[in-house]
Design a binder for these strands. Structure first.
Length: 596
RNA sequence: GCACUCGUAGCUCAAUUGGAUAGAGCAUCUGACUACGGAUCAGAAGGUUUGGGGUUCGACUCCCUACGAGUGCACCA
């Protein structure tokens, strides 16, 4: 797709060269969209050139504008200068041919294949409790980023590193062994992850009660901790697991199996999937060979107690332990090993970790170590860090029962969509099954959009009551525009009217022009968002596109347009709008209904 | 204490990466051809971009500083 600015930039570059002897590449010419309160399509800021022109900003703008108009009269139909801003107005034909080309494109907005592979690791849950709102931000982000990178032309591997071992799992196991009485998901009617979570909570409660009793008997905090039968049992369970004790391993497998069934259902409803699962039970011993290698290379150093460290003060970081004195791993040891494993298995050019910002320092250290070790893939590492999700009441705390459960929230939001749709009563002819599918699209769409429209690194507030609001800057509003377009296209088809994206001679209405100009930015939006690893621009694009369409829709009649040619052109515009909306929203994982 | 992140309308968020008069939605107020779908559109009101300095033709954006919020500084994961 040839965006008009791609034709305009070389012209501007050439003009600047002729006038001032500047050798700029077209990409270096900063053309931006003209603000809507001024006339024009693209604006060149001329301040940087006043020194060369030796003229006032206005005169410089006029000089450049006149030269551009002379060089490319078919592309530019006029210009105006306000202070140091040169506003260029494109000829209708420039927009029309861009539009015709976009309409012909197979997947308008998609980038060419890059021949590069990227892994996106996200979700990465613990297997001791169900997923909550914080995980949802992670999963929607990771999923959207994967879609985005794919659209922009990367070969994407979606990976999930499951934290399936450790003391937290053992706590659930101990509580289940003591209190469970053979309960199963089937016998309890609970989803597997919720059942296991129930015992994790039970452990915490029993442990706290016991601590309080011990302290009441006059024990200090440390003594109480050491004498707690619950804590002892959990530690013992972990040792037995590490030793491969058959009963412990069997219980572990059983309970993790329940959790995976539960997660599977949650992932499915969220609309995400993974190409590769890594399990910490397989990877937690990796990385020791890298410690050896680092020592041999002199990247690491050893203290007298045999512990192994790296000095990262040159990078503005600190000294970091990579192996304990007793030869056992720390967290970063296995992360080093897993990074090598991933790169080896998939020949990765880039590797993204979607992890909360409390681990910013950890990833800075991890990446710095891999660079020092000279790993060729190290330059492609990226930590997509995101902020915590707060509730209006403050922080989510699992211990205080203020977490928002993912399954509950999805159900609630879908219910809200159900109620709202019933209120409006527009889908009488739908089958029950179609209606249910619609409620899922609306409910899940609202949730995903709400969590993804915000810049990841910002901490955000989630108001359960407001987020499922279905008006304003929401997925629902965008879905509504799409449904309206589909309705028009259905009517046109029934009348036998066909779209035509390339009318011979056509004068654009300002709202048509504005809509085309906005749609034309999609490839650039995709490219930039992918480069920045940020899905949120796709949300902004979609919302703006739907608004531009709504404006066009109220000011321009489609099926009762003046001429057949105009009807057919506007149908083509409707069609491209719908396609752009589907493409952009698909990145966010939001499906677009044909009726609602 | 040290380091990192954030601070924009009453609320939730934007701002083309240093460009024009800082934009949307919600909430409030006022309008819209009996409408190709009103889950919409048009308009009003709401701002010293946390405060104070600095750099620049030009600052929400960069630098310094104060304040506020959060996170990290484990031989935990």
């Amino acid at each position: 797709m040839q965006h008009p600015v791609q034709a305009l930039a070389p012209v501007a570059a050439q003009v600047l060269n002729t006038l001032y002897g500047l050798a700029l590449s077209p990409a270096e010419v900063a053309l931006q969209e003209t603000r809507k309160e001024f006339a024009g399509d693209f604006t060149l800021v001329v301040f940087p050139y006043t020194r060369l022109s030796k003229l006032a900003p206005e005169a410089t703008g006029a000089q450049i504008g006149a030269a551009i108009l002379e060089t490319a009269p078919a592309l530019v139909r006029g210009f105006n200068v306000v202070k140091g801003f040169l506003n260029l107005e494109l000829a209708d034909q420039a927009w029309l041919s861009a539009f015709a080309e976009a309409s012909r494109a197979g997947r308008f907005g998609a980038g060419p294949a890059k021949g590069q592979r990227v892994m996106v690791e996200y979700s990465s849950p613990n297997t001791n409790k169900p997923l909550h709102l914080g995980h949802m931000r992670n999963i929607f982000l990771g999923s959207a980023l994967s879609n985005l990178l794919e659209l922009s032309g990367f070969d994407v591997v979606r990976a999930n590193l499951v934290n399936d071992r450790g003391i937290h799992i053992c706590k659930s196991m101990v509580a289940y062994a003591r209190l469970g009485q053979g309960e199963t998901p089937a016998s309890s009617g609970l989803k597997g992850d919720h059942l296991v979570g129930k015992y994790y909570v039970a452990y915490d409660k029993a442990y706290k009660t016991e601590l309080a009793e011990l302290k009441a008997q006059g024990k200090t905090d440390e003594e109480a901790e050491a004498n707690s039968t619950w804590a002892q049992a959990a530690r013992q369970s972990l040792e037995l697991w590490e030793a491969g004790d058959p009963d412990t391993v069997a219980l572990w497998k059983q309970m993790n199996g329940w959790v995976y069934e539960g997660f599977e259902a949650t992932y499915k409803r969220m609309g995400t999937r993974f190409d590769k699962f890594y399990y910490e039970s397989d990877t937690y011993l990796l990385g020791k060979d890298i410690v050896e290698e680092g020592l041999a290379k002199g990247v690491f150093y050893q203290k007298e107690d045999k512990s192994v460290w790296i000095d990262l003060t040159a990078e503005g970081l600190d000294h970091k332990l990579v192996l304990r004195g007793n030869g056992t791993s720390v967290y970063i040891t296995q992360d080093l090993g897993t990074a090598d494993l991933k790169a080896k298995e998939y020949a990765l050019d880039r590797s993204v970790y979607v992890v909360g910002n409390e681990q910013d320092y950890h990833f800075a250290v991890l990446f710095a170590i891999l660079k020092r070790l000279g790993r060729p893939y190290a330059k492609g590492l990226f930590h997509l860090s995101y902020g915590m999700v707060d509730l209006p009441s403050g922080k989510m705390k699992s211990r205080e029962g203020t977490v928002v459960d993912a399954d509950d929230l999805m159900e609630e939001t879908v219910q809200e969509a159900r109620n709202r749709t019933a209120e409006l009563g527009k889908i009488a002819e739908m089958s029950a099954q179609e209606a249910e599918a619609l409620y899922e699209m609306l409910g899940l769409g609202a949730l995903k959009y709400f969590l993804l429209k915000v810049e990841p690194k910002k901490r955000m507030t989630f108001n359960p009551a407001e987020s499922i609001d279905l008006q304003g800057n929401t997925a629902t509003a965008i879905q509504y525009s799409h449904a309206r377009i589909c309705s028009v296209l259905r009517k046109a088809a029934a009348e036998g009217l066909e779209a035509d994206a390339a009318p011979a001679n056509y004068t654009l209405h300002p709202d048509e022009r504005a809509l085309i100009a906005h749609l034309a930015t999609l490839p650039e939006v995709v490219e930039r968002a992918a480069a920045e690893m940020a899905p949120s621009p796709l949300a902004a694009f979609s919302y703006d596109a739907s608004r531009a369409f709504n404006k066009f829709f109220t000011s321009c009649s489609i099926l009762s347009a003046d001429s057949v040619e105009q009807k057919r052109f506007r149908l083509a515009l409707c069609d491209l709008t719908a396609r752009c909306l589907r493409t952009a929203m698909a990145v966010l994982g939001v499906a677009m209904p044909e009726r609602m």
